[in-house]
Every structure is written in C-alpha cells, then in structure tokens.
Design a protein around this nucleic acid. Structure first.
Length: 586
RNA sequence: GGUCCUGUGGUGCAGUUUGGAGUGCACGCCGCCCUGUCAAGGCGGAGGCCGCGGGUUCAAAUCCCGUCAGGACCGCCA
C-alpha cells in the first residue's frame, strides 16, 4: 500500500503518529517559507504543511493544482488561532517530512470542485475532472448506497437476482429500439431491451417466484432532464400476489431507502386513483409538495348567462394570497392557457366582503359568485383562475398553471404517492383500435372485466387496468401492473389492439406458448434508480447521478460516441449506408 | 420534426437593446516577493478568428440569414 490512511481517517487521536497519504492538490497556499497544501483523497481533505528548507523530495514551490502527491508526515494539532472548526479536519494538519510527485497536472480546462458549473459539453468532455468534485463524488457514492440498500431489501425478502439478456428480439410496440446488427445472420438485428418485461414474466412461469434485477434499459427517444438513452431500473416481479402486495412491498422499501438516506421520517406512499389525480391535479403524476387542488365548479355555472362558462366542465384553481399579481403576469398565464388549447383563462381577485374583481364580474350572478367562493373556499386576497371546456382540457390546463405557482425548495422533502387504476387504453388510433396505456400484458381491473370482454370502440376507454405508478414530487418514479396470465384475456387484448393472431404469434408467441404450460398469477414493478437518486440528491437532472451520461443530442463529448464505422466493419455486418440527404442534394 | 434560452482569453460573466479601435470584472495560468494560510496576500505578465459561414453597412461581438454546439421544453418516451 502506498498510504496508511485516508484523510477521513485522520483524527486528534493520531496526533504524533507518522502517516502516509496519497491524493490530489485541491488548493495550494505558497507563503515562500511555508507551503500549505489541501490534499484531497476519496475520504476528504486535510491540510498538509511543507517547510521548503526541511522537506525531502521535491521543491514544494513546483507543486501545482491537481498534482498527485504522496506525502509522509506527522499528524499535529494546529497552533492556537489557526483551527478551522467548520472543516472536517480543521483541528489537525500533517507536517510533512517528504513529498513525492506521483503525477503532474496540466492547467485545468474546467475548475475542479467549484460551485459554478462549467458548460455542459466541457463538463462531459472532461468528466474525469468533474468526477473529482464533491458534487459528483457525493452523488455516485449515494447511488452506490441506494443500490446496496435495494439489493439488501429485496434479498431479505427472498427475491432472486437474475440477469436477463441485452441482445433480444425487437418488438415494434413502445419506444424505438436501439438495434444491433447480427454478423452471423447478416440482415438480421438484435434489439437492446427497453425493459426486461417479457423475461421477468417468463421467470415467473419458470417458478422463480420472486425476481429482481438492477437492470440497464435502453430506449431510442429524445433525452430530457429525467431521461437518458440508457437508464437503470430496479426491476422486480412476484408470483401469487395482487397489486396491493406489490405496492405495499415496493412502497415500504422505497420509504425505507428515503429514511436511510435522508435520516428523516418517510411514510409509505399513500394511494390515489388516476381519475382523482387527473381531476384534482390535472396530471397523472401530481407533485404533492403543494396542495393547490383544482375544484370542479361546473355545477356552480349550470344555468349561467356567461357563454364562456356554458361548457361541459368548468374548473377552478384557488391560489392563496396571490390576488395582487400584476396584469402582465395574469396576461402571461392566459397566454400559457391558450397555448395549451384553452379558449381563455378567467381570473378573479377575491376582495373583502365577498366582493370580486374580474373582467367577467358583470356576467356572473350574485349566486354564482358566492357559490364559487364557497366551493373554492376562497379568502380575501386570493386569486381564482377558471378554465372552461372539456373536463380533460380544463384539468390539463389548470394542472399546468398550478405548477407555475409551486415554488420548489429543498426542505419540502420527498412526497410519494401511488397512482392506481389507470385506464387500460389511452385512446383510439386512426383505425379505431385502442392503444395500450401501459403495455399489452397489463391485466384489466377485475371490476371492469365484463366491460373489457364485451365493450367496443370508445366504451373500451373507460376500462380500468391493474396498473400503478409510483410518483415522487411530480416525477414518475416507476410503474408496474398485475399481468395477464390468462390466454383468453391476452388474446382479447391483442385482438383489440389490432394485432392479429398471426402477428401476436410472430412477436410474442414464446410468451403465449409459455402461458399454456401453467403460468402463475403474477405482478411486478420497476422504478428508475437514476430518478430516485436524483430526487434524493436534490438534483433536477439525472446526468448529475450518472458517471458518464450523454448530452441532449445523445452524444458523449468524452468518447465522441456515436462514431462512424469502418467500411470493413459495415461489410462484415452486411450493411451499407444510404446516402446522406445533404450529399444527395449537392 | 418544432419552440425558446445560451455561445466573448483556460473557466464563469458583463458588454449586444441604441453598430464606431477587443473595453471590463472575478477565478485560473506564468514570473518575482513572502514562515500560519485556509477563497492566503503583494507586485508584474501572458493569453481573444467575440462558435462557424454568409449578408447589410464607410464600419459588425453588436443588425439580418444560415449553420454547429450546449441547455429547457413540445412531439416522442408500450
């Protein structure tokens, strides 16, 4: 070993001991006759003191930022008046006898461990430098801890960790696949898994009973703050359980991880139906750090003279103590609402004594005004925003407006909620076939089974499923469902989706066949570890919890991926490239 | 595919609205001085195709068009 201690292991009990440390020069304060170096290693930082007239090894004036040093010295308590009580090793320092430069460092292209973040492409190009900073070090250590806690929790509950293949058959449903050309079967392609979905169901048929995996998943869709091409899920599946069993177990584990990491209390997630989430928050992933519910005030205006409110639905959002918003701000809210498809947005300032101030006040009767104030529980000084139209539109618009008033601060903590009873289908395609809202293996809700088996067209859209999402602070952390294990129901789903028996057989024949040989009832869940760690770390982009992420255009400035292939590589894969558009134009 | 924001010495910014010599700030870098600093300090210095390409103009970091890169979002994400 080149060292005897990490800097984090140094303490006053070691005063007088000789220690050997290795690390990077985080900061250098050269006073000529004495040189102070803040030496950083994986544990932290300690001040080492070098006397140029006594030190063995190198001239300490030549030492620069981020040089890699090995020092041998004696742990000492600091002289009176030089103790830094706000720093971990602030009471001690290491008086160095010898210094060895293990590696020099060029002038840095980006600062290491600074508060101000450099340009994202530079951060990624020099990721190894960015990784030295406290932010990414802390995030990756947190991530490792979360992985450990999850493995431990599932292991304790008798789940078997199983790896599933990365090179699989493409299934055209869902997200775009990343594909890999086959060399041994030229012209054929593997796909990289969007999730281990089919394999985990086969593991249940295979009698594994309880499976989990920390699984890499890949989807070729445009990256976002909460999405990368490749991401990591805690994937799990259980046999002989219902949706409550899965939600209870996963909720308990997620809450325990939050407690462990934050050292604060965290209840198991509550429950809310999809219909309630949509009606109350205008979104299927409500951010419950803020209450601000949407009220349905359609009944208040059932006989109104005001034409704009003679609609299927009128929704109201009461924003406490915001009655003094400027007209400019109100106008921008109206514009926002219109950009989302609302004909308009009506604002009402609530005054003392049930008076209101609004451009539409004169169109509303006294009864309507007072009913509105009662229904929304409005107080003087509040602002009420109203949108009228279809229920779906008013909910969505007010849901988006609601978020504009949610001022996020870190101390609000993590608010978890299960959203249940999603619709089985989320709409009809241009052929009139319903579209799966989760995936085609999601079981219909038992109470809607009859409807599911017999309904057609629009009526199918009211069939609920046994799908559930775990939502944290407005992020969809994960989703799961009770799976179909009956061939009859599975075949009906395929048929409704417009997938012919032949096509179903071609794509999912192996699963359907497996279901002929004794498939246990099973259900599962998967949640994004990148998102969970980002939430725990207080990061708003998952790049900050991934060691080597990609940019929004899917590039890696460090390795220059994606890159061109040699002609010989293409040839051995049986591939040839179509001419680029620009080249064909010129 | 689309909308919006950003691009100025190594880094982070100001300057762009209202065109007039690459002007400025902080950090870093280089040299010298300095024995108790910890964002060390003092003195001196180097470093710029103002992302790139066109256009307008007597004159462009600044205005216009295009393009590239990064970011936020829409579409997309069973």
């Amino acid at each position: 070993m080149m060292r005897t201690h990490l800097t984090s292991a140094l303490e006053t009990a070691l005063i007088g001991s000789t220690v050997e440390l290795c690390g990077w020069v985080a900061k250098r304060r050269d006073h000529g006759g004495v040189v102070f170096i803040d030496l950083r290693d994986a544990g932290g930082v300690v001040q080492v003191v070098v006397d140029p007239s006594k030190v063995v090894g190198v001239d300490p004036h030549l030492i620069r930022s981020e040089f890699v040093l090995r020092v041998v010295g004696v742990v000492k308590d600091r002289p009176e008046g030089t103790i830094k009580s706000d720093t971990a090793n602030g009471a001690i320092e290491v008086a160095v006898d010898s210094v060895e430069i293990l590696a020099a460092c060029d002038a840095l292209p980006i600062p290491v461990d600074e508060e101000v973040a450099a340009d994202e492409s530079l951060r990624l190009k020099y990721r190894y430098l960015d990784l030295r900073g406290r932010r990414l070090q802390g995030n990756l250590r947190l991530r490792a801890r979360v992985n450990h806690l999850l493995r431990q929790a599932f292991d304790e509950r008798e789940f078997i960790e199983v790896e599933t293949p990365l090179l699989i058959a493409s299934t055209p449903e869902g997200a775009r696949d990343f594909v890999v050309p086959s060399r041994l079967t030229p012209g054929s392609f593997y796909a990289l898994p969007q999730s281990p979905q089919l394999f985990k169901q086969l593991l249940m048929v295979g009698g594994l009973d309880r499976y989990f995996q920390i699984a890499r998943c890949l989807r070729d869709e445009d990256p976002r703050a909460d999405r990368q091409f490749e991401f990591t899920q805690l994937d799990m599946e259980m046999s002989f359980v219902d949706s409550d069993d899965v939600m209870d177990l996963v909720g308990e584990i997620v809450a325990s991880v939050i407690r462990d990491v934050t050292q604060e209390s965290a209840d198991n997630p509550g429950r809310m139906t999809w219909a309630d989430a949509m009606a109350t928050y205008g979104t299927e992933k409500p951010d419950l750090r803020f209450d601000l519910p949407i009220s349905n005030v359609t009944s208040v205006f059932s006989a109104t003279e005001f034409r704009a409110f003679q609609a299927d639905s009128v929704g109201a959002l009461r924003i406490p103590e915001s009655g003094e918003l400027t007209r400019a701000r109100l106008d921008s809210l109206i514009e926002r609402a219109q950009s989302l498809g609302a004909p308009g947005l009506v604002w009402i300032r609530v005054r003392e004594g049930s008076l209101i101030d609004s451009p539409v006040a004169k169109f509303l009767s006294e009864e309507e005004k007072s009913a509105l104030l009662t229904k929304t529980n409005a107080q003087p000084g509040d602002l009420i925003l109203l949108a009228a139209g279809s229920l779906a539109m008013t909910s969505e618009v007010l849901g988006v407006i609601r978020k504009e008033f949610c001022v996020v601060t870190k101390d609000l903590g993590l608010h978890t909620i299960w959203v249940t009873d999603f619709p089985l289908f989320e709409g009809l395609d241009d052929k009139g076939n319903p579209i799966s809202s989760h995936h085609p293996f999601t079981a219909p809700h038992p109470d809607d089974l009859d409807l599911f088996m017999h309904a057609e067209g629009e009526d199918l859209l009211s069939v609920r499923s046994q799908a559930y999402d775990l939502v944290v602070n407005g992020w969809e952390l994960g989703s799961g469902s009770v799976r179909i294990h009956s061939r009859e129901i599975q075949e009906r789903v395929f048929s409704l989706l417009g997938i012919s028996p032949e096509l179903a057989h071609a794509r999912f024949g192996f699963l359907l066949e497996a279901f002929r040989y004794g498939a246990p009832p099973h259900a599962g869940f998967a949640f994004g570890i990148d998102r969970l760690v980002a939430l725990l770390a207080g990061e708003d982009n998952i790049r900050e919890v991934i060691a080597f992420p990609k940019t929004q255009s899917g590039a890696d400035p460090l390795t220059n991926a994606p890159s061109l292939l040699e002609g010989s590589q293409l040839k051995s894969l049986g591939l040839s490239l179509a001419a680029k558009k620009k080249e064909s134009r010129s």
